[in-house]
């Protein structure tokens, strides 16, 4: 054996030794990895089970939200039916008031005429007293200004109730946005489950094919009664209107200067 060959063998033995030392050091780490995997497998099973449960519950929750939208729509319709019925009632009451006012005015005029006719007759004093008494009773029956204002106030309240029902449309859009989000989460969970089970099944989107998902919604819809959003929109409308009519304003100003 040549010395060079011997050197090679010695070097290889040293490499082998180093490998064995490395392996020896690695074994505890590998043992840890095995232990970790052993521990994680049941956890993954729990996770899978949890994902499956959540995924099964989401369509149900979505359906419940859908029912809320339906219920609020029905309630809004009922309220509106009642409010719609109140308008003609108020109108009738107002008409009755007008009729009563006219009748009282007519009776008052008649009484006044009677008092005039009775003037100079022996029973003039008594006739006057009777006319004054009946006139006072008639005046008491006259609809007061307060009653007229109250009727107007009831009609105004009806309008305000109706206007407030816009909350139904806005919440329906918010619920539709949440429903869409839930559907996206469910799709993600289903993709995750696919990795767990190695099955090729696609997410069951059909579970969401109930009517309310067809609502075309605005995810930014909000019930802001402060008027702030309207003021902001008005400012943009004015700004855009100015942009589209650049020549008009200066001309108008020149005319005013003359």
């Amino acid at each position: 054996m040549k010395p060079e060959e011997l050197n090679i063998i010695v070097r290889k033995v040293e490499e082998l030794r180093a490998l064995m030392v490395f392996t020896q050091r690695t074994i505890p780490f590998l043992e840890d990895v095995f232990a970790f995997v052993k521990d994680i497998v049941p956890l993954l099973d729990v996770l899978k089970s949890s994902v499956e449960t959540t995924s099964e519950k989401l369509p149900h929750a979505s359906k419940q939200l859908d029912k809320i939208t339906t219920a609020t729509e029905l309630a809004s319709t009922e309220i509106m039916n009642i409010v719609d019925g109140m308008y003609p009632k108020v109108d009738r009451m107002r008409a009755e008031q007008d009729v009563r006012k006219a009748a009282i005015a007519s009776v008052r005029a008649a009484l006044q005429r009677l008092a005039e006719l009775a003037a100079g007759t022996p029973g003039a004093g008594e006739a006057n007293a009777i006319c004054a008494s009946v006139t006072a009773q008639m005046d008491a029956l006259m609809p007061t200004e307060v009653a007229v204002q109250e009727l107007e106030s009831i009609q105004s309240d009806c309008t305000n109730i109706m206007i407030a029902l816009q909350v139904q449309d806005i919440t329906a859009q918010q619920i539709a946005a949440v429903n869409k989000l839930m559907q996206s989460v469910d799709e993600g969970l289903n993709r995750l489950l696919k990795h767990f089970s190695k099955s090729s099944s696609e997410p069951q989107l059909s579970r969401y094919k109930h009517r309310r998902l067809d609502i075309v919604f605005d995810s930014s819809a909000e019930f802001d009664a402060s008027g702030e959003r309207q003021r902001a929109a008005d400012a943009v409308v004015e700004e855009e209107a100015r942009k589209t009519q650049p020549a008009r304003a200066p001309r108008a100003r020149r005319k005013k200067a003359h």
Binding site: Q166, I170, A225, A233, D234, V236, V237
Partner: peptide
């Protein structure tokens, strides 16, 4: 949104909820 609506030439714009 308002700009987009104005670009297609709506005359004005109301944000719900509106008042009478």
């Amino acid at each position: 949104d308002v700009i987009e609506a104005m670009k297609v030439r709506v005359n004005n714009y109301i944000v719900k909820p509106f008042t009478a």
